[in-house]
Design a protein around this nucleic acid. Sequence first.
DNA 1: CTGAAAGCGCTAACAT
DNA 2: ATGTTAGCGCTTTCAG
Lengths: 339, 339
Amino acid sequence: MSPPSPPGRATLKDIARAVGVDVSTVSKVLNDGGISVRAQTRQAIIDEANRVNYRPHALARNLRTQRTGALGILLPDLTNPIYAETVHGAMRQAEQSGYVTLIAEVSDERRSAAAYMRLVSERRIDGLIIAVSAETEEMMAAIEANPVPHVFVNRRSSIGRSVTVDDQASGRLAAQTLIDAGHRHLAFIGSAPELDTSRRRRQGFVEVCAAAGLAPVLDIVGPVSRRGGFDAMHKLLDATRRPTGVFAFNMLVGIGALAAARVRGVRVPDDISVISLDGEDAIFTAPPLTAIATPLAEMGARAVVELEAMIDGREPQDVVIDIPPKLIYRESVAGPPNE
Amino acid sequence: MSPPSPPGRATLKDIARAVGVDVSTVSKVLNDGGISVRAQTRQAIIDEANRVNYRPHALARNLRTQRTGALGILLPDLTNPIYAETVHGAMRQAEQSGYVTLIAEVSDERRSAAAYMRLVSERRIDGLIIAVSAETEEMMAAIEANPVPHVFVNRRSSIGRSVTVDDQASGRLAAQTLIDAGHRHLAFIGSAPELDTSRRRRQGFVEVCAAAGLAPVLDIVGPVSRRGGFDAMHKLLDATRRPTGVFAFNMLVGIGALAAARVRGVRVPDDISVISLDGEDAIFTAPPLTAIATPLAEMGARAVVELEAMIDGREPQDVVIDIPPKLIYRESVAGPPNE
DNA sequence: CTGAAAGCGCTAACAT
DNA sequence: ATGTTAGCGCTTTCAG
């Protein structure tokens, strides 16, 4: 009938005028359901709201309520499937809880603090998920200067609000798997020690090795990437006493390691065994990677659950997802080659 | 000296009070630089703003200016590296232009419209980048019902606002490469015809095949994923007249195809050649994929440039990125096997 | 050169 | 059961 001029752009005032009531009444009805409003007026309001397809203006509401209904996510690189998977889980959960998600990529870790400030100090978000390094000075300072509910994901923070998995257990499982297959010369391809996940995986790995009387070689890659794994594996293969079983920090490193072996003509698993953490690609590598499942999406999801709790005033806590690491047997691990 | 109670939360009013001027004066100084404000007052204002580390309240400002400073991105799955790369490029550009990015994942394409409505009708964004299927009825209806500046990325839309690459040229290049290597029995692993990128790549592929007097087999995969490529390749290998050269729709499909070949014991490129579009992983596959570079990040970036232009009132247009497809020689293409 | 006033669209305490 | 009022923090005429 009467075409609402700009459709969907109706305001409370429009509805109020149409129905002949005050905007506050309309607000009541459309929010608390309008308890304490006469059924008849309520219905009229609801009908009119539907007719003009009313949608609240998020900004106006937020300005008033001091809540934005948005969660922020700070991460280094969306292009890294590890982060993509984590964010994926976080976004699912956020959406389910009615939040929209604001993502900021911080290529340079030293700019994390700036990005943090931007999102937080402009008050665009109710809380923040942080997937960049937790412990830089600047970051801590930024958080202190401008606090907002936040949780670190896949990074332990010293200030007690993080969601992680049991990385040490993963490290142990990796070592045990290799040892059980008969290997005695083990290696770990990890990262620079700043990454606490790498520290813990390494620690678990070393622990089991030590218990078995083994002294693994612990190699370092710069970036934990395919390229990093590629280079590290080359170094390992150059060593005078080549390991026969290697544990790659994550799937990317594992993929890189596989590629290096291939280039060098060393066969996996015949000549060398590789185990890594799991990811989407791992099943399509050559050979398919034997790997330890990591519930990245669950971590992301749990992080937003924790965040919501904090926004609602609950005390922050460190949570370790209690899904024990699970080995997925594929083809990249076998016994060591005969001497 | 005097500790600003909640640091960083200062408002214009606080500054005005401290300096002894009106908030409107402060606003002027902090926005248009305070032309037409006495140098002395201006300096005092700026100093105080710095002292309390003033940051404008984005919501309040936006409510007033009717601009949010946020761009939305609608995409199916962040976990898919194709989209991750595109979004990556878009976010870089958006950040550079001073926009924050709101990302919505829409797993079920049929819910795209709903997600669209949410972001747009709540007026959280100034514009939207759409990386989900362009042409669903619901989507078009949603856009029509609640228009906002928007551009489709890597999807052609019938309504003239999209950023794509020359997919047909890619298809031609793929066919030519295979033919030049000596292949006569070609295949294309594409997607269901809804994906316009697939249609165009296929078209270019077929065109060159026809010119060479070849009738390629055009296989279909359901989802364009590693799994999809895996299954499709199996079918191809089961065929009575096995192709010797296959063009995989994208890198994921290529990876899946490689895996299937491996499982079946057919060697790439000795027994069969595979060419696909390029991506981060392609260099680490076994063998490394010969592929056609696709400037996904550039597409994403260009999409936000176009979007900004539209937000600033320029006419929408269809743009085709003019980077011609470029072949990257690696190891998955060679001559056909001897009969 | 600066201040007063109005209003963006909404909510919430208070009044009727 | 409904309306009045005030205000979230900011920008922007318009007066002075």
